[in-house]
Computed example of a mutant assay.
Amino acid sequence: MRDVLAVVTVVVVGLMVGVEFAVAVFVNPILDRLPNDHGLDARSDGARVLGRIMPFWYIGSVILGAVWAIFAWGGAGASLVVAATALLVLSVVMSILLLVPINSRVATWSRDGVPADWRQQVGRWDRFHYVRVGVIVLAFALFAVALV
Rank of each mutant, 00 (worst) to 15 (best):
M1D: 11
R2L: 13
D3M: 12
D3E: 15
L5K: 07
A6R: 12
A6M: 14
T9F: 04
T9L: 11
V10I: 09
L15M: 13
L15Y: 04
M16C: 08
M16K: 00
M16R: 02
V17K: 00
V17F: 03
V19N: 09
V19E: 06
F21I: 07
A24N: 08
A24K: 00
P29G: 09
I30K: 15
I30D: 13
D32C: 00
P35L: 03
N36C: 05
N36G: 11
N36P: 01
L40C: 04
D41Y: 10
D41M: 03
V49Y: 14
V49C: 07
L50Q: 12
I53G: 10
M54C: 08
M54Q: 13
V62C: 05
L64W: 04
A72V: 10
W73A: 15
G75Y: 04
A76W: 05
A78M: 04
S79W: 15
S79P: 02
A83H: 04
A84G: 14
A86K: 04
L87P: 06
L87A: 03
L87Y: 01
V89H: 02
V93A: 13
V93Y: 05
M94A: 12
L99E: 14
L99I: 15
V100D: 10
P101S: 07
P101D: 02
R105G: 11
W109E: 01
R111G: 13
G113A: 15
G113V: 03
G113I: 01
V114S: 07
A116Q: 14
A116W: 03
A116H: 14
W118N: 09
D126C: 01
D126H: 14
R132L: 00
V133P: 12
I136C: 00
L138S: 13
L138T: 13
L142P: 05
L142V: 08
A144M: 10
A144G: 02
A144E: 07
V148N: 14
